[in-house]
Design a protein around this nucleic acid. Structure first.
Length: 856
RNA sequence: GCUCGAGUGGUGGAAUUGGUAGACACGUUGGACUUAAAAUCCAAUGUCCAUUAGGACGUACGGGUUCAAGUCCCGUCUCGAGUACCA
């Protein structure tokens, strides 16, 4: 299936570097670094040593019918079309720098021209090709799978504008990096070129086509059997089973670029086809996987490290590496050896320094309905962009949001999904009918979710332009997103893709930022506490948690609603929940058994309960551990729920949902409500006469203490908000309300700003109080109270007096007292003398406003 | 395996630049009010020793720096998260 993909890999290095200048959590940056997976090293080419008898020249590229094809090819060469003849004049004799062959068999085809060294095919099409677009497409696909690139030109173009055709061919040739595999040699990527003299074999991924090419007839049976066995194992199996070592010898040898020794070539599934070139130079003394492989198959393990014992395991410590037995690298440390090895490789043309990234290009097509459609139609099988002025496209209506019967994406069902190049609109083409002249089928894929999520925030800056561009003024005003609060689960998806898009749009000059989200906070998840019942394997008997030890049981999630705070299961409810449990037998904690379907065993009193096991997991319907916040809202109100979630702990921290303690927040809100209601003076014997409906806030001037309470609260809450430390704000409010209550504060001067402070935390109650205070507009529009330091000015400080760092007693002293006077006052104190027990202090440390420490 | 984070009372968690460890809340215990319960209020609550006064020990463990370390440095252990035959 042809799919669109995005070349995010081209941005790998910049995506990596950009992480340095954004304020994200270390863990998510690390996730992205791992995902990008940069490794610095070298590519090294190991020439293949030709096999006697199996040698096959590189130009014999035809398939099994090559002999028949060759006859036909000769005939075609002798009867070129005018266009072919014209082009051949310019291609032959390395006119463009690379050797071309004409009418040369490749697999089952005879392309017009081919450059084998660059694996480039040129086809010149006449009228006839309009009728066999699909056939040509299939042919192109097969050729591309063999590693060829196919360029197609029309006869008219070759004859009419040969210059342009040639320049296109030339630039394709120049930009084309041919995969270095093939008849010439095997290219590998290594991060340890310093250990190149330790190579004792090579390993290829079994999937590589090259394996078939190089395997000797004697080894073919072995190799085929191994490939078949690996193909059977699923990706997951291969990943889970890292321990088992397996592989097969191909019979082929490569030549060591420096020593010219023959290196045996193996295949093994520990080498991944998708990374690097799918081939490794195995250095068993320096890599544990190579070491294990060599040990398993009895391959030599030459040691290239000075003074290191490798009889037990490989030595992979770069920092302590000194190279030995390695010709010109002897005696060098890791860094120098790497440098020199690359230098020497480049000198003999056998390799070069290279940086590899694990990051893969991202597939951008989805075979779904819901998604942005591609503005693309296919003319003679070639994709054509629909011009910008005809956009946007709208999704066509379809009857069912399902793939078509012959496996096309849902858009294949749409009637009106052809592009009319005459009118530049989508038009309908009746089923089974040929589209009229100039009408072409459109792309049936849609874009994935991250198409929109990668740039939607830009759209918020301005949505007024018709072409979707963002005006510079809007961009300059908003800049990038200041704060992004989201889950870390998008670390390698959305959060990487949007960085990539932003950089791309920046490069094209559409926007002036090159990172989308300046600061990110990953809020912790509220987790669920799952409950488990344990079914004994192969039976319908459930064992209570205390009985499972030593038994083979299968844990099954039980709905947490059936379990009480003591982990006891409501057996009847559980058995009724699923029909298959209705006849189950439950072995209870004390060893007795119980059958809810009314068997002869009945429950006795006391310890006869079924206990469930508990585990903290993500909340999920499938785990039956979801608790519904509605119940909390109904019982305590939304403000309590909101505040309790904030009170639980730091924003970033994940934690299991546990309502123990919610009463504390709830009673705080009640206390706060009381602060604005009823008169504390109307209390009797410490118990206020409660009349919660009587609003009671006065215009009296607030006491000094109350103003102090208010302003220290403003200060703390303001700084807590800056640092996203909402849990400490909540306790600050609790302290404030406790203090104001004991101060019997009723003053509007204090209580009104307090309501504003608390409004982001308990918006409903705050709004209600705000309105009762006589305000007409919403509290959310009120000005945040301004901190005034003058209310916190203290004249004295209760100094902690410590002896050898241990606090012994406190002493109240004026804050404006200088160091010497403080020392004198402390030394004069009777308790000081008591703690000194007659000794003379060696030293007295006085930190004014902080602490006094007496040493000695 | 690798990378990143985190280890503080019975529990959730505080502690700004090294400067009074355990704020605030839950829980527990005792008390007030009540026929009773709920609600509310008051008191105690790190551990150990001590009748009290008071003392010793305490921030995963072992060292170090400092007048002073939960905080800084070195080493170890445990837990959590991410990632994984990536050459």
């Amino acid at each position: 299936m042809t799919q669109w993909s995005m070349r995010i890999s081209a941005y790998a290095e910049r995506l990596l570097q950009g992480l340095e200048k954004i304020d994200w959590s270390e863990s998510i940056k690390e996730t992205q670094r791992n995902w990008i997976g940069k490794s610095v090293g070298a590519t090294v080419v190991f020439p293949l040593i030709p096999q006697r008898g199996t040698e096959r020249p590189g130009y014999l590229t035809g398939g099994n019918n090559a002999k028949l094809l060759l006859e036909r090819a000769k005939e075609m060469r002798n009867n070129p079309t005018p266009a072919e003849a014209a082009l051949w004049e310019s291609l032959k004799s390395k006119n463009l720098g690379d050797k071309f062959r004409r009418q040369h068999p490749i697999a089952e085809f005879i392309p017009d021209f081919v450059c084998l060294s660059k694996k480039l095919i040129i086809e010149v099409d006449g009228e006839i090709h309009d009728d066999q677009i699909e056939k040509d497409q299939a042919r192109t696909e097969i050729l591309e799978n063999l590693g060829y690139k196919v360029l197609r030109f029309r006869n008219e173009k070759v004859l009419g504008n040969l210059e342009e055709v040639l320049s296109e061919i030339k630039s394709t040739l120049d930009n084309r990096e041919i995969p270095p595999q093939g008849a010439r040699g095997i290219s590998v990527f290594t991060t340890r070129p310093d250990t190149i003299f330790g190579v004792s074999f090579m390993t290829l991924a079994p999937e590589l086509d090259l394996v078939q090419e190089i395997t000797t007839p004697e080894q073919k049976a072995d190799v085929d059997a191994y490939i078949e066995a690996t193909a059977k194992r699923s990706e997951r199996e291969r990943m889970a089973d890292v321990k088992t070592i397996s592989g097969a010898f191909t019979g082929a040898y490569a030549e060591h670029p420096f020593t010219k020794e023959p290196i045996p070539i193996w295949i093994g599934d520990y080498v991944l086809a998708g990374y690097g070139t799918g081939a490794v130079m195995a250095v068993p003394c320096g890599d544990q996987r190579d070491y294990d492989f060599a040990n398993h198959f009895g391959i030599a393990i030459p040691n290239v490290f000075e003074g290191v014992d490798i009889s037990e395991e490989a030595f992979a410590d770069k920092d302590n590496t000194v190279i030995a037995n390695s010709d010109f690298l002897n005696g060098l440390k890791y860094k120098k050896a790497v440098k020199l090895a690359i230098y020497e490789l480049e000198k003999i043309g056998a390799g070069s320094g290279k940086t590899n990234y694990r990051l893969r290009d991202a597939v951008f097509s989805r075979q779904r309905y819901w998604g942005e459609p591609f503005p693309v139609y296919y003319k003679n099988g070639m994709p054509q962009m629909i011009a910008k002025e005809h956009l946007p496209l709208e999704l066509p209506e379809i009857e069912k949001y399902l793939p078509t019967e012959d496996g096309e994406p849902p858009l294949g069902r749409a009637k009106k999904w052809h592009w009319d190049t005459n009118t530049n609109t989508t038009v309908a083409v009746a089923e089974g009918e040929e589209p009229p002249q100039g009408v072409w089928g459109m792309d049936l894929n849609t874009m994935p979710g991250w198409a929109g999520s990668s740039w939607y925030f830009l759209k918020y800056m301005d949505n007024t332009t018709a072409d979707g561009s963002i005006p510079k003024e809007a961009l300059d005003y908003w800049g990038n997103v200041d704060l992004y609060i989201g889950g870390s689960e998008h670390g390698t998806g959305h959060l990487l893709y949007s960085r990539f898009w932003t950089k791309f749009l920046f490069d094209r000059g559409f926007i002036s930022i090159d990172e989308p989200f300046q600061k990110m906070i990953n809020q912790g998840m509220i987790l669920g506490t799952s409950a488990f019942v344990y079914r004994e394997e192969g039976t319908q008997t459930f064992l209570s948690e205390g009985l499972i030890e030593g038994k083979k049981t299968q844990p099954i999630h039980a709905p947490v609603a059936f379990v009480n705070a003591s982990n006891e299961l409501d057996i009847e409810a559980f058995a009724k929940w699923r029909p298959e449990f209705k006849d189950a037998i439950f072995m209870l904690e004390d060893g007795s058994s119980f059958s809810p379907s009314g068997g002869d065993v009945r429950r006795t009193e006391g310890d006869s309960v079924y206990k469930v096991g508990r585990e903290v997991e993500k909340m999920s319907k499938s785990k039956y551990n979801v608790v519904n916040p509605d119940d909390i809202c109904n019982q305590y109100g939304a403000d309590t729920l909101r505040m309790y979630e904030m009170f639980l702990g730091p924003l970033e921290q994940a934690k299991p949902w546990n309502t123990a303690g919610i009463t504390g927040v709830h009673s705080f809100l009640k206390k706060m409500w009381k602060l604005y209601h009823s008169s504390p003076s109307a209390s009797k014997g410490g118990t206020p006469l409660m009349d919660e409906d009587t609003f009671f806030v006065t215009d009296e001037a607030a006491s000094k203490d109350s103003l102090k309470t208010l302003h220290k609260t403003i200060k703390k809450v303001a700084s807590d908000i800056e640092s996203f430390s909402f849990n400490t704000s909540v306790s600050t409010f609790m302290i404030a309300v406790n203090e104001l209550t004991s101060q019997k504060c009723t003053s509007k001067e204090v209580l009104e700003p307090l309501a504003i402070l608390i409004s982001p935390y308990a918006p409903h109650i705050a709004e209600e109080l705000w309105s009762k205070l006589g305000n007409e507009t919403s509290i959310s529009a009120a000005t945040f109270p301004v901190f005034d330091a003058k209310h916190l000015v203290e004249s004295s400080k209760e100094y902690p007096i410590s002896f050898n760092g241990k606090m012994r007693f406190k002493l109240e002293l004026p804050l404006d007292m200088n160091k010497d006077d403080i020392e004198a006052a402390v030394m004069a104190h009777e308790k000081t003398q008591q703690y000194l027990e007659g000794r003379t202090p060696k030293k007295v440390i006085v930190v004014p406003g902080k602490i006094v420490n007496i040493v000695g």
